[in-house]
Amino acid sequence: MASTKPDVPAWLGFYNGAEHIMRLKGRCLVRLGDGAAAVTALEEAVQALPVHYVRERSGTLIDLAIARLMPSRTGHTSAVEPEAAATAALEAWELAVQTGSGRNQRRVRELLPQLQPYRQLGAVRTLLEAAP
């Protein structure tokens, strides 16, 4: 959604879009340690991102995977969703390969050690095989 104000540069409209605000909000919530709130924001962002924002979708899916691997704010690991995290990370990996994004490929690979304990799960195994 581009800005409609004449005094705002057109390129800035890219960052003012609701989908970008939601993905940046989700990334901030991950950094603040609020995985549950981050999942909500990042899922909304993934739904809102236009299909042609491939690299942004990949990065947002990586953040979503990270959020799904976070314990609850009280430290309970019951909030950890390794299969959902692996599914998001696999989609992110495929998009990162498609766009040639070395940064997003690296970010997915950085998640792999956290997923190793869950390698018996189908989605995790698929990711571990796809992102060597």
Results as ranks from 00 to 15, higher is better:
L42Q: 03
R27V: 06
A131Q: 00
Q105L: 09
R23N: 14
R57V: 00
V51K: 13
N16L: 14
S72G: 14
A65H: 06
R68F: 09
A38V: 02
Y53D: 13
L111H: 12
S3I: 03
R31T: 01
A89C: 10
R55G: 08
L115I: 07
P117K: 09
T99C: 09
S78L: 08
L29C: 11
L61S: 01
A130R: 10
Q114S: 14
V51M: 04
T40Q: 12
R68Q: 15
N104I: 00
A85W: 00
Q120A: 15
R107N: 14
D34Q: 11
V51L: 03
P82K: 04
L64I: 05
A85C: 07
V46F: 08
S78M: 05
Q98P: 09
G122P: 02
A96N: 06
L24A: 11
V54N: 01
A67F: 07
V80C: 08
V80T: 08
P132W: 00
P132Q: 04
A96V: 06
R68E: 09
E83M: 11
I62M: 00
N16A: 14
A79G: 03
L69E: 01
T74W: 02
H52S: 11
T60Q: 06
Q116C: 06
L69C: 08
P9D: 08
T87C: 02
R55I: 10
S72Y: 03
L69M: 13
L64G: 08
A18R: 15
A131M: 01
E83N: 09
M22H: 12
T99R: 12
A92T: 05
V30M: 05
P9L: 03
H20R: 15
E110N: 14
P82R: 04
T87P: 03
